[in-house]
Amino acid sequence: MALLPILEYPDTGLRKVAAPVPADRFADPAFQRLLDHMFQTMYEAPGIGLASTQVDTYERFMVIDVTETRDQPLVFVNPTIRDRSADLRVHTEGCLSIPGVFADVTRADGIVVEAFDRHGKAFELIVDGLLATCVQHEIDHLDGKLFIDYLSPLKRDRALKKLEKLRKGRD
């Protein structure tokens, strides 16, 4: 399988809103391969979630595996958050598209998410904790939003300066 290039901030592709996946796409072998390549890319990065927009594909799907053993891969196609708990959770988030930058983000601790699996079967999950944070983070990607958008202007500026410094160190 091929590793996919991950777009990095400030690539304008990260701000594009993904279109719904049509029903006939599930039977497409190329779509199934793309999902497999996304998992491989996510695991190698390493990360716990990857949205299609991060790999320059603008359809509404994402892959997630928050387990340490990397043995519970989840595919969400056309995901929608149907409910959010009133309880909030602060989690230190990072992003494969903003490598090396981490910041505290407040999100709903629990959510109800509806989606289709990789074969087009509808499902609903009630999740909390890290998985809820990850689902919300990846859906934000599909909507053209990044975790740094939740930060105050001062914290966002610091995060982006850190990213710039890290990039200079890579060159």
Results as ranks from 00 to 15, higher is better:
D83Y: 09
K162N: 06
L35D: 08
F123C: 04
K161D: 12
D56P: 11
Y43W: 14
I139G: 00
V90C: 08
A23R: 14
H119P: 05
D36H: 11
K162V: 10
A23S: 13
M42K: 01
A2N: 12
A18E: 01
P29R: 07
S52C: 15
T133L: 12
G94F: 07
I48N: 03
K155M: 11
R107V: 09
K168H: 15
Q32F: 13
D157Y: 06
C95L: 05
K16Y: 06
Q136M: 02
R107C: 07
Y43S: 04
L74C: 05
K155F: 14
R167F: 07
H91C: 06
L160V: 05
A18F: 01
D171S: 10
I64D: 05
D143G: 00
P5R: 10
A115W: 11
D104G: 02
F147A: 01
F26C: 12
R84L: 13
L88D: 09
Q54H: 04
D36Q: 14
D140S: 03
Y58N: 03
D28F: 11
R60C: 07
D71V: 03
D87A: 12
F76S: 02
D117S: 05
S97C: 04
V75N: 11
D128Y: 06
A45N: 15
F116C: 14
E164Q: 13
A51I: 07
E59W: 13
E93D: 06
I148D: 00
A2F: 06
R15S: 09
L130V: 13
R82M: 13
E8S: 04
R25M: 15
T69S: 14
H141K: 00
G110C: 09
V127A: 12
M38V: 08
M42L: 06
Q72Y: 07
P153F: 07
P99R: 00
D24L: 13
L35Y: 04
R158N: 06
M62Q: 03
G129M: 10
D28K: 04
K121G: 07
T80M: 12
F26E: 11
P79Q: 11
D36C: 09
S52N: 13
A19K: 15
K155I: 12
K155T: 12
V55L: 10
S85E: 08
R15Y: 08
E164T: 12
R60P: 07
M42A: 03
P73T: 02
A122G: 07
H141S: 01
F39A: 02
S152H: 04
F39K: 00
C95Y: 08
E138H: 01
T12H: 07
D157P: 03
F123I: 08
A30I: 08
E138Q: 01
P20L: 12
A132S: 14
F61W: 11
A132D: 09
F102A: 04
T80D: 13
A23V: 12
P73N: 02
V75G: 08
T12Q: 12
L34H: 15
K165R: 15
T92F: 08
M1Y: 11
R167H: 13
A108E: 02
L142V: 05
A159S: 13
V101T: 02
Y58R: 05
